[in-house]
Design a protein around this nucleic acid. Sequence first.
DNA 1: CTGAAAGCGCTTACAG
DNA 2: CTGAAAGCGCTTACAG
Lengths: 334, 334
Amino acid sequence: MNIRDIASISGYSVGTVSRVLNGHPSVSDRARARILEVVEEYGYEPNYNARFLKAQSMESVAVFVKGAGNRLFGEILELIQTQLIEAGEEAVVTYLDEDADEVAAAVRYQRIRHPKGILFLGGEPAYFKAQFAEIDVPSVLITNDATGLAFPNLSSVTTDDESAAYQMCEYLLSCGHRRIGIVGGNRSEGQVSGKRLRGATRALQEHGVSFDFDRDFEPCHFTEAEGYDAIANLVMRSRDLTAVFALGDVIAFGAVRAVYDMGLRIPDQLSLAGFDGVSLSQFAVPRITTIRQDVRTIARRGVEILLAAMAGEGGVVHEFVPYQLLKRESVCKL
Amino acid sequence: MNIRDIASISGYSVGTVSRVLNGHPSVSDRARARILEVVEEYGYEPNYNARFLKAQSMESVAVFVKGAGNRLFGEILELIQTQLIEAGEEAVVTYLDEDADEVAAAVRYQRIRHPKGILFLGGEPAYFKAQFAEIDVPSVLITNDATGLAFPNLSSVTTDDESAAYQMCEYLLSCGHRRIGIVGGNRSEGQVSGKRLRGATRALQEHGVSFDFDRDFEPCHFTEAEGYDAIANLVMRSRDLTAVFALGDVIAFGAVRAVYDMGLRIPDQLSLAGFDGVSLSQFAVPRITTIRQDVRTIARRGVEILLAAMAGEGGVVHEFVPYQLLKRESVCKL
DNA sequence: CTGAAAGCGCTTACAG
DNA sequence: CTGAAAGCGCTTACAG
């Protein structure tokens, strides 16, 4: 069953059938009604490949997710997928390793598949600088700020990581903590963890609290297992810490377990804070004090901005979505 | 840059270029070398849509994931995606609600996109009975047994849920527990949770321990929040329980928190067991006693079976992958 | 508003 | 082993 069959059965030409199928305005109501009737009756579905042969582009949005173990991305992805489908777009998602080059993957993908738009969940600015210029479809970077990148087709929606981390540290300081350690992420400037790190250390510095990277910081990936090892190393090394700021909830969750195994009580003997506001954080024992990123809004705006750009409306935008400091049980006053 | 350009530049015909690109045998080494050289030089990539216009099928595998919050599926999906890419296949994944009709979604998808194969992560047998007959590409159901369905193009790879749940209950019984409650899933026969439920209750029954569904069972979805509420209801209702078997780790995790909030200590005052062996379970406080499903093997076999079927080798198979009872800290001897 | 026809970029019998 | 040509199922100026 193809468009030619529908044409001959309905008594109209292939061109008219095509126009009806694509919602073209210049078709008589009579023709439209008759053709839709036939389409309905035979359960005809246009061939997907042929449809976009001419357009050279497929009717879909490519999504690149960096770090499959990242719970936050999982939550955002779920929302994005739903919205894209509601908007009549199909999402093709590709999972990448936390350290993989997402831009190289996107460039390759674009060359082969010609998607209508691209969504990045997580991104390394260095990779964007290196190769994003080769991408010419509308794109949105989610959970990292692309303002500085200044590409004409790259928008971004994210939490102001630096300011949120700054605020968390101010909170820890207000609780009387003066020896604060940090676990998670790495020091590379443009990355999300780098921004959180910067905000956190800036807060400490401005309040006259010393922070020595070699002694008070331990990098790690965003997994429970690495969080476990990282905080163990950190606490062994700097025994006078009274609080530790884990740059992600998943890391914090692994850290909680490690602290228990070291025989310390949270928060009495060590306060612990997270970042992200993933559902896990509110069920952990103790409940983890964290920064709640507004995933619903981030997902919604990310998709809205992309769809608008795909429709040729509105230019590049860079948005910060409000976050929230959730004071729970894992941090205590000194 | 299209195949015609490559043909004229290389001095060969379009047909020969196409044959080289598709690894057809009947091409001279000379022609192959020259053509590949030109392809390389110009960075040519064949048009994806045109490529499959004739074949009527796209070069990809559709994956339907049921329940986006399900950590186990997340872990399996990550592995599957990696393997599919290594095999040169592209994975198009669609997330569905835990209660959604995955087969209806697949039927619709197949009609429009013609994938080469389909992978289901989670599935409701009733939906398969209703409509799977309309699907004619090789498919594999992962984490549920499709033996009884008896479709000629539907294989399955899963843990023997019934026997694993049976074993977990035997373990609880061996620890001296006689009043055991169950939370999670629902009583519908074919579903995974239904099978776990059956195995568990069969163990109790065979050991002469009474189990009253109305009193000792509380259904819920596989999320922390529902697990929290479910166990709270259950324990309020049946105060004499000494152990609760949560039919999923995510549920167990929410349950741990709820039990704490009720002022009970785990495992001293209430033992708690989970199912799945998701990474979360080993970092929880206390570490959760659970059934570890072998996600690596499940993912690997699922993909292998699908690829074989897509290649026309080997028929339908239904495999149980070995599981493991992980005795950890959340269950104690009475 | 509608039809006839060219064309999208590739694959694949059919000859040779 | 290779080329010329038909065809995959659709879209889209171009006429009328």
